[in-house]
Design a protein around this nucleic acid. Structure first.
Length: 374
DNA sequence: AAGGCGGGGGT
DNA sequence: ACCCCAGCCTT
Protein backbone atom coordinates (compact mmCIF):
# COMPACT_ATOMS: atom_id res chain seq x y z
CA UNK A 1 0.00 0.00 0.00
CA UNK A 2 0.99 3.62 -0.49
CA UNK A 3 1.98 5.13 2.83
CA UNK A 4 0.59 8.41 4.06
CA UNK A 5 4.04 9.97 4.25
CA UNK A 6 4.64 9.14 0.61
CA UNK A 7 1.21 10.34 -0.42
CA UNK A 8 1.45 13.68 1.33
CA UNK A 9 4.11 15.12 -0.92
CA UNK A 10 4.01 12.60 -3.66
CA UNK A 11 3.07 13.06 -7.25
CA UNK A 12 0.66 10.15 -6.67
CA UNK A 13 -1.86 12.35 -4.86
CA UNK A 14 -1.85 14.87 -7.68
CA UNK A 15 -2.11 12.11 -10.29
CA UNK A 16 -5.17 10.73 -8.50
CA UNK A 17 -6.73 14.18 -8.37
CA UNK A 18 -6.11 14.88 -12.05
CA UNK A 19 -7.45 11.50 -13.22
CA UNK A 20 -10.53 11.73 -11.02
CA UNK A 21 -11.41 15.30 -11.96
CA UNK A 22 -10.95 14.59 -15.67
CA UNK A 23 -13.29 11.62 -15.32
CA UNK A 24 -15.81 13.62 -13.29
CA UNK A 25 -16.09 16.35 -15.91
CA UNK A 26 -17.25 13.72 -18.40
CA UNK A 27 -19.31 11.45 -16.18
CA UNK A 28 -20.91 13.54 -13.46
CA UNK A 29 -24.64 13.11 -13.19
CA UNK A 30 -26.68 16.28 -13.56
CA UNK A 31 -28.53 16.51 -10.27
CA UNK A 32 -30.85 19.30 -9.10
CA UNK A 33 -28.56 20.30 -6.21
CA UNK A 34 -25.61 20.54 -8.56
CA UNK A 35 -27.21 23.34 -10.56
CA UNK A 36 -26.22 25.95 -8.03
CA UNK A 37 -23.78 26.09 -5.17
CA UNK A 38 -26.35 27.65 -2.85
CA UNK A 39 -25.11 26.46 0.57
CA UNK A 40 -28.70 25.93 1.71
CA UNK A 41 -29.39 23.63 -1.27
CA UNK A 42 -26.13 21.77 -0.68
CA UNK A 43 -26.98 21.31 2.99
CA UNK A 44 -30.55 20.11 2.32
CA UNK A 45 -29.40 17.66 -0.35
CA UNK A 46 -26.67 16.26 1.89
CA UNK A 47 -29.14 15.67 4.72
CA UNK A 48 -31.56 13.92 2.38
CA UNK A 49 -28.81 11.83 0.79
CA UNK A 50 -27.47 10.58 4.11
CA UNK A 51 -29.46 7.39 4.21
CA UNK A 52 -31.32 7.59 0.95
CA UNK A 53 -30.33 7.07 -2.66
CA UNK A 54 -30.13 9.75 -5.34
CA UNK A 55 -33.14 8.64 -7.38
CA UNK A 56 -35.38 8.68 -4.31
CA UNK A 57 -34.13 12.05 -3.12
CA UNK A 58 -34.60 14.04 -6.36
CA UNK A 59 -38.40 14.59 -6.16
CA UNK A 60 -38.24 15.24 -2.41
CA UNK A 61 -35.46 17.79 -2.92
CA UNK A 62 -37.38 19.65 -5.59
CA UNK A 63 -40.58 19.78 -3.56
CA UNK A 64 -38.62 20.83 -0.46
CA UNK A 65 -36.90 23.73 -2.24
CA UNK A 66 -40.26 24.95 -3.52
CA UNK A 67 -41.81 24.76 -0.10
CA UNK A 68 -38.86 25.93 2.02
CA UNK A 69 -36.64 27.92 -0.37
CA UNK A 70 -34.28 29.31 2.25
CA UNK A 71 -33.09 29.05 5.84
CA UNK A 72 -35.53 31.64 7.18
CA UNK A 73 -38.56 29.94 5.60
CA UNK A 74 -37.54 26.59 7.03
CA UNK A 75 -36.91 28.04 10.49
CA UNK A 76 -40.35 29.67 10.53
CA UNK A 77 -42.26 26.64 9.19
CA UNK A 78 -44.64 24.53 11.27
CA UNK A 79 -43.05 21.24 12.29
CA UNK A 80 -46.04 19.39 10.88
CA UNK A 81 -45.28 20.88 7.44
CA UNK A 82 -41.62 19.89 7.73
CA UNK A 83 -42.52 16.32 8.65
CA UNK A 84 -45.10 16.16 5.86
CA UNK A 85 -42.47 17.26 3.31
CA UNK A 86 -40.10 14.58 4.62
CA UNK A 87 -42.77 11.88 4.77
CA UNK A 88 -41.57 8.69 3.10
CA UNK A 89 -37.85 9.46 3.36
CA UNK A 90 -37.58 7.82 6.77
CA UNK A 91 -35.30 8.62 9.70
CA UNK A 92 -37.39 11.63 10.59
CA UNK A 93 -34.90 12.99 13.11
CA UNK A 94 -33.05 14.23 10.03
CA UNK A 95 -35.99 16.53 9.23
CA UNK A 96 -36.32 17.75 12.81
CA UNK A 97 -32.56 18.40 12.98
CA UNK A 98 -32.72 20.30 9.71
CA UNK A 99 -35.32 22.65 11.14
CA UNK A 100 -33.57 22.98 14.51
CA UNK A 101 -30.34 23.85 12.71
CA UNK A 102 -32.19 26.41 10.55
CA UNK A 103 -33.43 28.09 13.72
CA UNK A 104 -29.88 28.23 15.05
CA UNK A 105 -28.65 29.68 11.76
CA UNK A 106 -31.23 32.47 12.04
CA UNK A 107 -30.23 33.15 15.65
CA UNK A 108 -26.45 32.89 15.39
CA UNK A 109 -25.37 32.94 11.75
CA UNK A 110 -27.33 35.79 10.20
CA UNK A 111 -29.73 33.32 8.57
CA UNK A 112 -26.99 31.68 6.54
CA UNK A 113 -25.38 28.25 6.48
CA UNK A 114 -22.03 28.80 8.23
CA UNK A 115 -18.83 28.05 6.35
CA UNK A 116 -16.42 26.92 9.05
CA UNK A 117 -16.10 23.28 9.93
CA UNK A 118 -16.42 24.01 13.63
CA UNK A 119 -19.58 26.09 13.27
CA UNK A 120 -21.09 23.44 11.01
CA UNK A 121 -20.22 20.62 13.38
CA UNK A 122 -21.95 22.41 16.23
CA UNK A 123 -25.30 22.24 14.42
CA UNK A 124 -27.72 19.36 15.02
CA UNK A 125 -27.60 16.70 12.32
CA UNK A 126 -24.24 17.84 10.95
CA UNK A 127 -21.37 15.45 11.71
CA UNK A 128 -17.89 15.03 10.25
CA UNK A 129 -19.13 13.95 6.83
CA UNK A 130 -21.76 16.67 6.33
CA UNK A 131 -19.46 19.41 7.63
CA UNK A 132 -16.80 18.38 5.10
CA UNK A 133 -19.38 18.19 2.32
CA UNK A 134 -20.81 21.67 2.94
CA UNK A 135 -17.41 23.29 3.52
CA UNK A 136 -15.91 21.83 0.35
CA UNK A 137 -18.87 21.79 -2.05
CA UNK A 138 -20.64 25.00 -1.05
CA UNK A 139 -17.64 27.04 0.11
CA UNK A 140 -14.71 25.63 -1.86
CA UNK A 141 -12.60 24.81 1.17
CA UNK A 142 -10.03 22.01 0.97
CA UNK A 143 -11.76 19.95 3.67
CA UNK A 144 -11.96 16.17 3.40
CA UNK A 145 -15.07 14.06 3.67
CA UNK A 146 -15.52 10.34 4.16
CA UNK A 147 -18.74 8.47 3.52
CA UNK A 148 -19.43 4.84 2.59
CA UNK A 149 -18.41 5.45 -1.01
CA UNK A 150 -15.13 7.05 0.02
CA UNK A 151 -14.42 4.22 2.45
CA UNK A 152 -14.82 1.75 -0.38
CA UNK A 153 -12.85 3.69 -3.00
CA UNK A 154 -9.91 4.44 -0.71
CA UNK A 155 -9.85 0.98 0.88
CA UNK A 156 -9.44 -0.41 -2.62
CA UNK A 157 -7.22 2.29 -4.09
CA UNK A 158 -4.67 1.89 -1.29
CA UNK A 159 -5.43 -1.78 -0.47
CA UNK A 160 -6.30 -0.99 3.14
CA UNK A 161 -7.12 -3.98 5.31
CA UNK A 162 -9.48 -3.80 8.27
CA UNK A 163 -12.90 -2.34 9.02
CA UNK A 164 -12.99 1.23 7.65
CA UNK A 165 -15.60 2.20 10.23
CA UNK A 166 -13.42 1.36 13.22
CA UNK A 167 -10.25 2.79 14.60
CA UNK A 168 -7.50 2.75 13.52
CA UNK A 169 -8.40 2.43 9.83
CA UNK A 170 -11.15 5.04 10.19
CA UNK A 171 -8.60 7.70 11.16
CA UNK A 172 -6.22 6.57 8.44
CA UNK A 173 -8.87 6.96 5.74
CA UNK A 174 -9.65 10.51 6.90
CA UNK A 175 -5.92 11.21 6.64
CA UNK A 176 -5.82 9.87 3.09
CA UNK A 177 -8.92 11.88 2.17
CA UNK A 178 -7.33 15.03 3.60
CA UNK A 179 -4.07 14.48 1.72
CA UNK A 180 -5.93 13.89 -1.54
CA UNK A 181 -8.28 16.87 -1.31
CA UNK A 182 -5.34 19.09 -0.38
CA UNK A 183 -3.53 18.02 -3.54
CA UNK A 184 -6.66 18.88 -5.54
CA UNK A 185 -6.85 22.32 -3.98
CA UNK A 186 -8.07 24.07 -7.08
CA UNK A 187 -11.39 22.18 -6.94
CA UNK A 188 -11.89 20.53 -3.55
CA UNK A 189 -15.69 20.37 -3.88
CA UNK A 190 -15.51 18.73 -7.28
CA UNK A 191 -12.80 16.37 -6.09
CA UNK A 192 -14.88 15.20 -3.11
CA UNK A 193 -17.95 14.78 -5.28
CA UNK A 194 -15.89 12.90 -7.86
CA UNK A 195 -14.65 10.49 -5.21
CA UNK A 196 -18.22 9.75 -4.09
CA UNK A 197 -19.54 9.63 -7.67
CA UNK A 198 -16.88 7.07 -8.54
CA UNK A 199 -17.94 4.95 -5.58
CA UNK A 200 -21.61 5.24 -6.51
CA UNK A 201 -21.29 4.46 -10.21
CA UNK A 202 -18.00 2.59 -10.87
CA UNK A 203 -16.34 1.36 -7.68
CA UNK A 204 -19.57 -0.26 -6.52
CA UNK A 205 -19.88 -2.69 -3.60
CA UNK A 206 -20.46 -5.64 -5.91
CA UNK A 207 -19.42 -6.10 -9.54
CA UNK A 208 -17.23 -2.97 -9.70
CA UNK A 209 -16.59 -1.75 -13.25
CA UNK A 210 -12.81 -1.63 -13.05
CA UNK A 211 -12.46 -1.54 -16.84
CA UNK A 212 -14.19 1.89 -16.78
CA UNK A 213 -12.30 3.21 -13.77
CA UNK A 214 -10.03 6.23 -14.22
CA UNK A 215 -7.95 5.08 -11.25
CA UNK A 216 -7.49 1.45 -12.35
CA UNK A 217 -3.82 1.93 -13.19
CA UNK A 218 -3.20 3.30 -9.69
CA UNK A 219 -5.42 0.87 -7.78
CA UNK A 220 -3.52 -1.31 -5.34
CA UNK A 221 -6.46 -3.66 -4.76
CA UNK A 222 -6.70 -4.31 -8.49
CA UNK A 223 -2.96 -4.95 -8.66
CA UNK A 224 -3.17 -7.40 -5.74
CA UNK A 225 -6.50 -8.90 -6.90
CA UNK A 226 -8.23 -7.79 -3.70
CA UNK A 227 -11.01 -5.69 -5.22
CA UNK A 228 -13.74 -8.15 -4.25
CA UNK A 229 -12.33 -8.55 -0.73
CA UNK A 230 -12.22 -4.84 0.10
CA UNK A 231 -13.41 -3.04 2.09
CA UNK A 232 -13.47 -5.50 4.97
CA UNK A 233 -16.88 -4.69 6.39
CA UNK A 234 -18.17 -6.88 9.20
CA UNK A 235 -21.11 -9.14 8.46
CA UNK A 236 -24.39 -7.71 9.67
CA UNK A 237 -26.54 -9.38 12.23
CA UNK A 238 -29.54 -11.12 10.71
CA UNK A 239 -32.82 -9.25 10.77
CA UNK A 240 -35.22 -10.16 13.57
CA UNK A 241 -38.77 -10.91 12.44
CA UNK A 242 -41.42 -8.84 14.21
CA UNK A 243 -45.17 -9.28 13.96
CA UNK A 244 -47.27 -6.16 14.46
CA UNK A 245 -50.90 -5.17 14.10
CA UNK A 246 -52.40 -1.82 13.15
CA UNK A 247 -56.04 -0.92 13.78
CA UNK A 248 -58.19 0.72 11.14
CA UNK A 249 -61.13 1.64 13.35
CA UNK A 250 -64.03 3.12 11.38
CA UNK A 251 -66.98 5.24 12.41
CA UNK A 252 -69.25 7.31 10.16
CA UNK A 253 -66.93 6.72 7.19
CA UNK A 254 -63.99 8.08 9.16
CA UNK A 255 -60.93 6.27 10.46
CA UNK A 256 -59.08 6.70 13.73
CA UNK A 257 -55.51 8.00 13.77
CA UNK A 258 -53.30 9.26 16.57
CA UNK A 259 -50.48 11.81 16.60
CA UNK A 260 -47.46 10.66 18.61
CA UNK A 261 -46.17 12.66 21.53
CA UNK A 262 -43.15 14.94 21.08
CA UNK A 263 -41.01 12.65 23.23
CA UNK A 264 -41.93 9.46 21.39
CA UNK A 265 -38.81 7.40 20.67
CA UNK A 266 -39.56 7.44 16.95
CA UNK A 267 -42.03 9.17 14.62
CA UNK A 268 -42.57 11.92 17.21
CA UNK A 269 -45.30 14.28 16.02
CA UNK A 270 -46.36 12.00 13.18
CA UNK A 271 -49.75 10.37 12.63
CA UNK A 272 -50.18 6.60 12.85
CA UNK A 273 -52.95 4.06 13.10
CA UNK A 274 -53.00 2.56 16.59
CA UNK A 275 -50.43 -0.23 16.46
CA UNK A 276 -48.57 -2.69 18.64
CA UNK A 277 -46.34 -5.70 18.46
CA UNK A 278 -48.08 -9.04 18.73
CA UNK A 279 -46.41 -10.61 21.73
CA UNK A 280 -45.59 -14.29 21.66
CA UNK A 281 -48.59 -16.34 22.75
CA UNK A 282 -50.94 -13.49 21.91
CA UNK A 283 -53.39 -13.63 19.03
CA UNK A 284 -53.49 -10.73 16.56
CA UNK A 285 -57.14 -10.21 17.48
CA UNK A 286 -56.26 -9.78 21.14
CA UNK A 287 -53.46 -7.40 20.24
CA UNK A 288 -55.91 -5.29 18.22
CA UNK A 289 -58.44 -5.07 21.07
CA UNK A 290 -55.69 -4.28 23.54
CA UNK A 291 -54.02 -1.51 21.55
CA UNK A 292 -57.32 0.11 20.58
CA UNK A 293 -58.27 0.38 24.24
CA UNK A 294 -54.86 1.53 25.46
CA UNK A 295 -54.45 4.11 22.69
CA UNK A 296 -57.95 5.56 22.47
CA UNK A 297 -60.08 3.98 25.21
CA UNK A 298 -62.31 2.27 22.64
CA UNK A 299 -63.77 -1.24 22.75
CA UNK A 300 -63.89 -3.20 19.52
CA UNK A 301 -62.79 -6.34 17.74
CA UNK A 302 -61.20 -6.80 14.32
CA UNK A 303 -63.51 -7.86 11.52
CA UNK A 304 -61.28 -8.19 8.46
CA UNK A 305 -57.78 -7.57 7.10
CA UNK A 306 -57.27 -4.29 5.24
CA UNK A 307 -53.80 -5.21 4.03
CA UNK A 308 -50.49 -6.66 5.15
CA UNK A 309 -47.45 -4.39 4.96
CA UNK A 310 -43.99 -5.93 4.99
CA UNK A 311 -41.12 -3.58 5.58
CA UNK A 312 -37.63 -3.70 6.96
CA UNK A 313 -36.19 -1.14 9.31
CA UNK A 314 -32.67 -1.32 10.65
CA UNK A 315 -32.41 -4.82 12.04
CA UNK A 316 -36.08 -5.72 12.12
CA UNK A 317 -38.18 -7.29 9.41
CA UNK A 318 -41.72 -6.31 10.20
CA UNK A 319 -44.98 -7.83 9.11
CA UNK A 320 -47.72 -5.32 9.88
CA UNK A 321 -51.27 -6.67 9.66
CA UNK A 322 -53.85 -3.91 9.37
CA UNK A 323 -57.24 -4.94 10.79
CA UNK A 324 -60.50 -3.17 10.15
CA UNK A 325 -62.55 -2.66 13.30
CA UNK A 326 -66.10 -1.49 12.67
CA UNK A 327 -67.89 0.95 14.98
CA UNK A 328 -65.92 0.43 18.18
CA UNK A 329 -67.77 1.56 21.30
CA UNK A 330 -66.84 4.48 23.51
CA UNK A 331 -65.56 8.02 23.02
CA UNK A 332 -62.06 8.23 21.58
CA UNK A 333 -59.60 9.82 23.99
CA UNK A 334 -55.89 10.47 23.49
CA UNK A 335 -54.46 8.08 26.08
CA UNK A 336 -51.01 7.07 24.89
CA UNK A 337 -50.82 9.66 22.08
CA UNK A 338 -50.75 13.47 21.94
CA UNK A 339 -53.93 13.71 19.90
CA UNK A 340 -56.52 11.34 18.54
CA UNK A 341 -58.80 12.10 15.60
CA UNK A 342 -61.41 10.65 13.28
CA UNK A 343 -60.43 11.54 9.71
CA UNK A 344 -62.09 10.90 6.39
CA UNK A 345 -59.85 8.74 4.17
CA UNK A 346 -59.29 11.74 1.91
CA UNK A 347 -58.09 13.93 4.78
CA UNK A 348 -55.39 11.42 5.69
CA UNK A 349 -53.32 12.74 2.77
CA UNK A 350 -52.63 15.98 4.67
CA UNK A 351 -51.09 14.18 7.63
CA UNK A 352 -47.43 13.25 8.03
CA UNK A 353 -47.32 9.45 8.33
CA UNK A 354 -44.43 7.00 8.18
CA UNK A 355 -44.24 4.91 5.01
CA UNK A 356 -45.88 1.74 6.35
CA UNK A 357 -48.88 3.66 7.66
CA UNK A 358 -49.12 5.73 4.48
CA UNK A 359 -49.55 2.43 2.59
CA UNK A 360 -52.44 1.52 4.88
CA UNK A 361 -53.97 4.98 4.43
CA UNK A 362 -53.77 4.68 0.64
CA UNK A 363 -55.47 1.30 0.84
CA UNK A 364 -58.22 2.69 3.05
CA UNK A 365 -58.76 5.52 0.57
CA UNK A 366 -58.98 3.23 -2.47
CA UNK A 367 -61.33 0.88 -0.58
CA UNK A 368 -63.62 3.75 0.39
CA UNK A 369 -63.60 5.16 -3.16
CA UNK A 370 -64.55 1.72 -4.47
CA UNK A 371 -67.35 1.39 -1.93
CA UNK A 372 -68.68 4.87 -2.73
CA UNK A 373 -68.69 4.24 -6.45
CA UNK A 374 -70.52 0.91 -6.38
C1' DA B 1 -38.09 -13.05 0.57
C1' DA B 2 -33.58 -12.00 1.85
C1' DG B 3 -29.55 -9.28 1.93
C1' DG B 4 -26.96 -4.75 1.59
C1' DC B 5 -26.11 -0.26 2.77
C1' DG B 6 -24.71 4.40 6.51
C1' DG B 7 -23.90 8.93 8.92
C1' DG B 8 -25.07 11.08 13.36
C1' DG B 9 -25.97 11.03 18.15
C1' DG B 10 -25.80 9.19 22.52
C1' DT B 11 -23.22 6.88 26.10
C1' DA C 1 -14.60 4.28 21.01
C1' DC C 2 -18.38 1.91 20.92
C1' DC C 3 -23.59 0.92 19.95
C1' DC C 4 -27.95 1.99 17.98
C1' DC C 5 -30.95 3.93 14.97
C1' DA C 6 -38.35 1.85 13.08
C1' DG C 7 -35.95 2.43 5.52
C1' DC C 8 -35.24 1.70 0.91
C1' DC C 9 -33.19 -0.60 -2.99
C1' DT C 10 -31.22 -4.61 -5.36
C1' DT C 11 -30.85 -9.37 -6.02
Amino acid sequence: MISMTRLRDDETARAIGRALLAWYVLHRRELPWRQSLDPYAVWVSEMMLQQTQVATVIPYFERWMQRFPDVATLAAAAESDVLHAWQGLGYYSRARNLQRAATRMVEHHDGRVPASINALRALPGIGPYSAGAIASIAYGQAEPLVDGNVNRVLSRLFALRGDPNRAPLKAAIWDYARALVSAAERAPGDFNQALMELGATVCTPRAPRCTSCPLAALCQAKKLDLVEQLPELPARAKATPVHMVAVVATRNACVLVGRLKADAPRWAGMWLFPNAEVKSGQTPEAAVRDVLFRTAGLRGSPSSIVCVVRHSVTRFRITLDAYRTLEPSGVARALSVAEIAWKSPMDLAALAMPAAHRIIAERVLSDSAGAGGS
